[in-house]
Design a protein around this nucleic acid. Sequence first.
DNA 1: TTGTATGCGTTATCAA
DNA 2: TTGATAACGCATACAA
Lengths: 340, 340
Amino acid sequence: VKRRPTQKDVARLAEVSPATVSYVINNLSGGNIRISDETRRRVWKAIEELGYQINVNARSLRTQKTQLLAVMVPDLTNPFYPLMIRGAQSLAEENEYQLLVYDTNDSKERELIFIEAMLRRRVDGVVLVSFHLEVQDAIRLLEAGIVIVSVGGRLRDAGFDVIATPEREAACDMVEYLLLKGHRRIAHLSGPQDTPAGRARLEGYCQALSQAGIAFDERLILPGTFTHDRTVELIHAFLDGISEEDRPTALFAANDLMAIDAIQTFKKRGYKVPGDIAVAGFDNIPEAEVIEPPLTTVGHDARNMGWQAVKLLLERIESEEDLQPRTVSIPYYLVPRTSA
Amino acid sequence: VKRRPTQKDVARLAEVSPATVSYVINNLSGGNIRISDETRRRVWKAIEELGYQINVNARSLRTQKTQLLAVMVPDLTNPFYPLMIRGAQSLAEENEYQLLVYDTNDSKERELIFIEAMLRRRVDGVVLVSFHLEVQDAIRLLEAGIVIVSVGGRLRDAGFDVIATPEREAACDMVEYLLLKGHRRIAHLSGPQDTPAGRARLEGYCQALSQAGIAFDERLILPGTFTHDRTVELIHAFLDGISEEDRPTALFAANDLMAIDAIQTFKKRGYKVPGDIAVAGFDNIPEAEVIEPPLTTVGHDARNMGWQAVKLLLERIESEEDLQPRTVSIPYYLVPRTSA
DNA sequence: TTGTATGCGTTATCAA
DNA sequence: TTGATAACGCATACAA
């Protein structure tokens, strides 16, 4: 481990001043800086020779820009988020930004830890997929000059950019699809009701039922978590607690992770899917294709969401004036397979 | 967006020198620095009052430590890696390090881009899950004082720490299991042979056959990629090209991603799994449980691998002297399910 | 067309 | 028990 060369070393070797090295590296030419081609060549040669690489850290201190973006997600083991991160990374990389990834494991405490860490780290922007943060928590980032884009609809209307799927409409469409298939008793395995995604999907469910003139039946709502936690038990408890004639003929789960757990549980208990009970999900994660029967679900392009998120961040970071808050709506589509 | 307070501001408010603020923040007390409790109180009060947060960047410049670790993975959409990252993050977080995640999408070019970026970024350590890097590429990091741990066995014996599952033994065990089930014609859907994981799993396959006195048949080796790319076509081509009597009764795939593609393809062509052909995989990703039939596979604890990787990194970063290269072997276990 | 000098926010050395 | 002060490596205003 040897000392790494600095611009000073390069300057010495190229027989120019450190400032000139900086000019060359940043390829300055506009304004009143004009470096001769001859000098540029000498500097680049010295850079090559020494294997000089800029110290991003030192530059950050000076420019007040870290070239660092962060992505906070609630559950990295939900395959939706790795896809999103891929999309985010592809654009970040093109622009020579790096991506900090933080999995909060669905914990409010860790969401707050994340905020503090980013504040200290002086990242340039963050993509928040938050389930628990309050607007005021996010505001702290804005005050510190850290740009935010919120994915998934919690944290709206707080002056930053939002990326969202029209969840309510999508859920409504899916339930209409089930109705079209002739189902009249449709249960809903919901997401947490303190998340906008959870709420919106429930609302869509209600809306479709009401449009079809079907009365809302509270016993058909299973309060889920969006995660693997406790979903299986929840289904068991539900089935144990309902009579055969009251049993729904279809279940709309608020996401695929839970839908898959549901299918597994139904099968384990000897119900045929979709014969005895049809199941539909939301997200179209890779497992949805693989499970038997393949899951009917709502697709939305995770990769695109990540890409768009970074796009909004970069635009805001690079823009001089304050941009108006923007909303990007991600298209969704029904993915009919055999589970419903 | 207002200017953020610095130690100077804190110092002014607390009526002490900036140095003292730094002492208090870093809780210095050993050596010849001894700050009175009264002063400490005043400083903390000022910190609270101003909402001061340290600038990690500036500190990095001074200390030459960024508190940044990076994880490079070949395919974030392989659920194995998100799990590994979770494990890595949990330990990193405890020690107030942040994690940079980089998905190379199995491209050598991007692996090299990653190296360069980390060199410029001055991260303290990297976890490499590399499929393409040469030892010399990694050495560049070491020369720059960046600590490395290599996961998965490529890049061995180059002076840095390694985390690996005994892949050969595990593969051998799995094939022995298939033999025990009475299979005599066992095909292998291999990983790329320029990766150690790919090679080791093939070796294990060969070893088990040879121990059972079964001749190696080259026609039963399908050269796979470890990814979804082209796996389905590969299987189709294989089945098209083989007579019914030559058809194997079992397939050992070098990872679950490919095993699952194989099962899907077999089913699509009307073969019963495991009746007509048994299938076994490697990794025990979440999908393996979900597919029909559930996949018999080899499990190894991805989360633990990530955790161990960061442990090795931190030990090396914090240690004064040069540690000897260490190897952590991750236990594996057969997960018998119904596909084989 | 290039060099000098300063400051970004810390930490660490030395002196008081 | 504390305070001056000098780096860390870079970018930039200003001078030459």
